[in-house]
Every structure is written in structure tokens, then in C-alpha cells.
Design a binder for these strands. Structure first.
Lengths: 165, 165
DNA sequence: CAATTTAAGTCAGTAATGTTGACATATATG
DNA sequence: CATATATGTCAACATTACTGACTTAAATTG
């Protein structure tokens, strides 16, 4: 089969390989978000809330502008979701003392709890895939995904060291 | 730094590693869908249309039920998008002669053209990431992503051989 | 200091994508 | 014939995103 196909079209395997990558990304993302989505639904939240909770938890003190650059959505879209999270006591805002235009965002204890719930769920999935795949595969996974990401953002991910403020 | 942190919490690197995976998936998916999204916008379509066009193009003769299992959305959600694609001449439906309840879906030439446009865009991105990463990394990428996917669906991706009907 | 830029927020309208629930039709199968 | 299956449809609604126009407060710059 494979021999026949590659004789007919030498590009077949290559295209097949690339299409497989696309499908893997689709299915993986679909399943990667399924459990968090169902947890969030219990809180009346959606995937957008998850992203805010995740990135604020990941880097406490993030500003609104930073979130906008990460999420690549409009200020108005973020505002709705962030406003809900603040009103419902999952996230706090406080002016940065050095530049009081900036609002530093942080999770409340309630917010941190939800963040843990969501992250633990995804950690289990990723940890299991990592274990099954092995360290070398994990390295390849990271390399390829990094290559899919906009160059400007690559640094932010690799460097990411939670500074604690 | 790393030494200090891993002394403080031996689980630090592990959790850090898992969080990095989550972020890689988020950023990669964000950037992976960006270009198709902007192409689709010119046609008045969105990501949902892309998925239908992609999977119908990938496996001509797919039925509605099969699409529903792949996309994991409701019949009503699919119907809206699929209906548009049929009405606007991107997809055709014809009853399966053996089981005339089933509608076999296929791309029209117009649909195939759009599919190529979208897939080529993503192919370029994936091919570039694959080239930079190397064959071994690609293998790891596939292994890990496969591990993130629901077991039931894993087979479908690996086996996937377009039968041409 | 005055003018400008930056960070954030707000109001209004619109669109895409998804959901539930109820029901209809055609076809296949036991 | 009764039932199950595949598909389609109507209606109402929620979430997430968008554009455009404007405001406020604070920092920066000439």
C-alpha cells in the first residue's frame, strides 16, 4: 500500500504526515480542553475565564495589557470576562504603585483554588502522556510546538520563571 | 536558581514542565489557527466551517454522523455550518445508495480550492516547524499528542488512509 | 506646564459558535 | 408492523469574539 502510494506520488507521505500533525493538534486540543470546560461550566464560566485564571495564577501581578498580548483578544472581550472574575471574587486588581495606570492582577484564595482544580485536571492528562511517551519524546514535543509559535512569543515561554510578584 | 528551587520543592520542575506543556499547547493552537481564520473571514466563514471543510476533504464521503463524532458538537451546531457550506456550493450531499438515510459529503471544486488554500497555509507552518525540529523531535511530538487524545480516537488518526470514496 | 501618549475601562451593536429541548421525516432492521 | 437509526428543523439562549466611539487617569515628553 505505502509503496504503491509513494510511487504514484512521492509527496504523498509528506502531505500525509503534515495532515496528521494538523489532526493531532485538533484532537489533542479538543480533548485537552474537555475536562476543564466541564469543570468551568459548574461555575458558570467558560474557556475564556480559564485562560485568565491560568495566566494570572501563573504570573501573579500580570497587567491587563500583558494579558491582552498573551490572549490576542480585544480589550472589550477581556474586560467582560475579567470583570466577572473580579466581581465574583476570583481575581483582585490593584494599582501598581510605580505606574498607577496599571492594574496588577492576582488570584484570591478562591481563585487559586479553582486554578488548582483546573490545572490539576490538565496536569494529570499531560503527565500521563509524558510518562507514556518518555523524556525524549517530550523534548521533541516541546521543540515542534515551539516551532509553531510566533517567534516573538517563544522566549516568553521558555524563560517563564514565576517571579512571585 | 534551578537548584535552589528544586531544593525548596522537588516537584517544582515537574509542575513547571507540565505547565509549560499547557502553555505550549495554548500558544501553538492560537498561532496555528490564526492564518486560516483570516482566510476564512474573507469568505464569511469561521473556524467551524474550516473543520467541516477539512474533514470532508480529508475523507470524501464522510457522513454527518461521522463528522459529529469527530467534532464533538451537536447536530444543530453542525447543521448550521454544513447547511451554509452546501447552500454556498462548497460541499455536496448525496444519499448513500446502500443506506439511503446517510448523506455522503464531498467537496465541490470550489470547496476543494478553499480546502487547499487553508491546508497549504497550515502545511507551511507545520512543515517549517518539522524541518527545524528534525525527524526525531517530530516522532516525539506525535507520540505525546497521541497520548493526549481519547483512546477511542487514537486509532482513527494513525490508521487514516484516504480511501478515495 | 501644556500636549501627548499610554493603560484601562465603558457603551452599543453585531457575529460566530456552541448549547437544550422538542419534534419531523425517511429509511433500515428485527 | 414496530422500533431504532440518520438526518433535519424550529426556537430560545449563552459564550466568546468583533468593531467603533468615547472616557478617565496617569505618565511622559517637548
Amino acid at each position: 500500500m505505502v509503496q504503491l502510494k509513494s510511487r504514484v506520488s512521492p509527496l504523498f507521505l509528506r502531505e500525509e504526515e503534515l495532515r496528521q500533525a494538523m489532526e493531532l493538534l485538533f484532537y489533542a486540543y479538543r480533548d485537552f480542553t474537555a475536562e476543564p470546560d466541564s469543570i468551568l461550566a459548574k461555575y458558570g464560566f467558560g474557556r475564556a475565564h480559564h485562560r485568565v485564571i491560568y495566566f494570572v495564577g501563573r504570573k501573579p501581578g500580570t497587567t491587563v495589557g500583558e494579558l491582552l498580548r498573551i490572549l490576542k483578544i480585544t480589550k472589550q472581550s477581556l474586560s467582560r470576562v475579567l470583570g466577572q472574575l473580579v466581581r465574583e471574587g476570583f481575581v483582585t486588581q490593584e494599582s501598581d504603585p510605580r505606574d498607577r495606570r496599571r492594574r496588577r492582577l492576582r488570584l484570591t484564595e478562591k481563585g487559586a483554588e479553582l486554578e488548582r482544580l483546573l490545572t490539576e485536571s490538565q496536569c494529570r492528562l499531560v503527565a500521563s502522556a509524558y510518562r507514556e511517551a518518555g523524556a525524549q519524546a517530550v523534548e521533541g514535543f516541546r521543540t515542534v510546538l515551539l516551532g509553531l509559535i510566533n517567534e516573538e512569543d517563544r522566549g516568553a515561554i521558555v524563560d517563564a520563571e514565576p517571579t512571585g510578584n
